[in-house]
């Protein structure tokens, strides 16, 4: 029995097929596993190893380098407050303390109801819109403690707070693990054909014409 459900296994194979070398799909597949389960489990790493022609230790080795991958369960909503300089200049420390108080957890912790995990974020490229926090990597710009409180109320009520975010983002707030709500799909009839680098010997045809 593999880890991925039937639908995700198909998606996983499709992702692998886009790369000239299977191992390149390793990070996208870890994301897919996190999307299915909310965190990275051992069976997930085993199946990713099979799909990418690596070992589960190599999958673990790569995965633990990147902070977005969680190797233990986390909350349904991952709240990250940026505490880098641009945000700090405009009140990120105060926002950080506020979030800690409201959720009543330490940084890195998860609330007892399993709803929220709270972390510090490194600069998320919203510096002119400081201070900033994200929920499952969805942006909330120029954030006040009041805005944070409103977002928490929405999430607890099962409503999407995205319209309160200043990002031009809207729709449903996905659960932790889902990043893009759209997947790239290369139509088979349109693909130029993806080959292993060793299968390509010379320049592509439109360059040959010139030579």
């Amino acid at each position: 029995m593999g880890f991925f459900n039937e639908e995700n296994e198909e998606i996983a194979k499709e992702i692998v097929s886009r790369y000239p070398v299977a191992r390149s799909a390793l990070i996208p597949l870890l994301h897919l596993a996190q999307e299915q389960e909310g965190w990275i489990t051992k069976p997930a790493m085993e199946q990713i190893a099979e799909l990418t022609d690596t070992t589960s230790v190599e999958v673990l080795g790569t995965g633990t380098f990147y902070e977005m991958f969680k190797f233990h369960p986390v909350g349904k909503y991952l709240i990250k407050v940026c505490t880098n300089i641009s945000c700090q200049l405009l009140g990120a420390d105060e926002l950080f303390e506020h979030v800690k108080t409201v959720l009543d957890i330490e940084e890195g912790g998860t609330t007892e109801d399993g709803l929220f995990t709270f972390e510090e974020a490194e600069c998320v490229a919203a510096c002119t819109e400081a201070p900033c926090f994200t929920v499952n990597y969805r942006y909330f710009h120029r954030a006040s403690p009041e805005l944070f409180d409103e977002v928490v109320v929405d999430l607890k009520a099962g409503e999407s707070p995205l319209s309160k975010g200043c990002a031009d983002d809207q729709g449903v707030m996905p659960e932790h693990g889902t990043l893009s709500r759209v997947r790239q799909q290369i139509p088979k009839t349109r693909s130029a054909g993806i080959k292993h680098p060793e299968e390509i010997k010379g320049p592509p045809s439109w360059i040959e014409e010139v030579v």
């Binding site: 886009r18 996208p28 994301h31 990147y66 902070e67 991958f69 130029a192 054909g193």
Partner: peptide, 23 residues
């Protein structure tokens, strides 16, 4: 994008890849 772009011989695939948090 893809095979024979705009009816020419030029063919290329563009794949979106995404990272996982590391400056």
């Amino acid at each position: 994008i893809g095979k024979n772009i705009l009816g020419t011989k030029f063919s290329v695939d563009i794949v979106m890849h995404w990272g996982a948090g590391a400056y």
